[in-house]
Computed example of a mutant assay.
Amino acid sequence: MKMLITEEFLVRYIQDEFHICYPHLKLEFFRQPHGLHEGSHRVDKVHPDTHIDEIRDFHSAAWIDFGGYITAADLEDQFTHLLGLSAQVFRKSGNVWLETTETDDLTLGELEERSSYEATRAGIPDNDLNEQT
């Protein structure tokens, strides 16, 4: 899936569209960038009702590809290089959300499959996955 992201978008809209494709993953945005296999600081997390224009470095629209064959690292790099946004992919493990620091090299499809399996194995109902930690 590809999504055209413009300055009018709210962070929440991007997160919701991502969550539709990957119910066991989530996408968060941060005010400070992070490196490959590094986490982001919780205090830098951007509120979902923030306009993209308020947090990005580049003032242009861009198509972001978050198909199942894209790695978490590649998705985060697209946000950084095309829009100047610091994004972090999280995956559901049991009842907690984990940053994909150690699994940045896995594709979104692989991360979704792994998280879906762990959720099923743990007996967590799908409707519980929308709760924030």
Score class of each variant (00 low, 15 high):
residue 118 E to T: 04
residue 52 I to V: 11
residue 51 H to I: 04
residue 83 L to I: 02
residue 60 S to P: 00
residue 117 Y to F: 14
residue 65 D to T: 03
residue 52 I to W: 03
residue 93 S to N: 06
residue 108 L to A: 14
residue 119 A to D: 00
residue 15 Q to W: 02
residue 51 H to C: 09
residue 64 I to C: 11
residue 25 L to N: 01
residue 118 E to Q: 13
residue 95 N to C: 08
residue 36 L to G: 01
residue 7 E to W: 02
residue 89 V to H: 06
residue 45 K to M: 14
residue 104 D to R: 11
residue 54 E to D: 05
residue 27 L to M: 07
residue 128 D to V: 10
residue 76 E to C: 14
residue 121 R to G: 01
residue 99 E to V: 01
residue 107 T to Y: 12
residue 31 R to N: 09
residue 104 D to T: 00
residue 75 L to G: 01
residue 81 H to S: 08
residue 77 D to K: 14
residue 77 D to I: 07
residue 18 F to H: 02
residue 13 Y to C: 09
residue 126 D to T: 01
residue 96 V to Q: 11
residue 127 N to R: 15
residue 8 E to R: 13
residue 7 E to A: 06
residue 24 H to W: 03
residue 58 F to K: 14
residue 79 F to N: 03
residue 123 G to Y: 05
residue 72 A to S: 06
residue 128 D to H: 15
residue 122 A to V: 02
residue 129 L to E: 03
residue 12 R to H: 12
residue 73 A to D: 06
residue 103 T to H: 12
residue 89 V to T: 06
residue 107 T to W: 06
residue 80 T to D: 13
residue 55 I to R: 07
residue 20 I to E: 09
residue 11 V to A: 15
residue 72 A to D: 02
residue 94 G to H: 04
residue 39 G to N: 04
residue 113 E to Q: 14
residue 120 T to R: 15
residue 14 I to Q: 04
residue 17 E to H: 08
residue 101 T to L: 14
residue 65 D to E: 10
residue 30 F to C: 01
residue 72 A to P: 01
residue 101 T to C: 15
residue 7 E to D: 03
residue 44 D to T: 10
residue 95 N to D: 03
residue 17 E to P: 00
residue 103 T to I: 07
residue 61 A to V: 00
residue 99 E to A: 07
residue 110 E to M: 14
residue 5 I to F: 05
residue 24 H to C: 12
residue 96 V to A: 10
residue 111 L to C: 06
residue 23 P to N: 07
residue 70 I to A: 04
residue 1 M to Y: 10
residue 119 A to L: 05
residue 121 R to N: 03
residue 102 E to A: 12
residue 114 R to K: 15
residue 11 V to F: 13
residue 123 G to V: 00
residue 118 E to V: 06
residue 50 T to W: 09
residue 132 Q to T: 05
residue 109 G to H: 05
residue 31 R to C: 07
residue 113 E to W: 12
residue 28 E to M: 14
residue 15 Q to C: 13
residue 126 D to N: 07
residue 10 L to Q: 09
residue 56 R to M: 08
residue 106 L to N: 06
residue 89 V to G: 06
residue 65 D to W: 12
residue 35 G to A: 08
residue 71 T to V: 09
residue 21 C to F: 10
residue 80 T to V: 10
residue 83 L to D: 00
residue 12 R to Y: 12
residue 65 D to R: 13
residue 42 R to C: 13
residue 105 D to F: 09
residue 125 P to A: 05
residue 106 L to T: 00
residue 62 A to H: 08
residue 98 L to H: 01
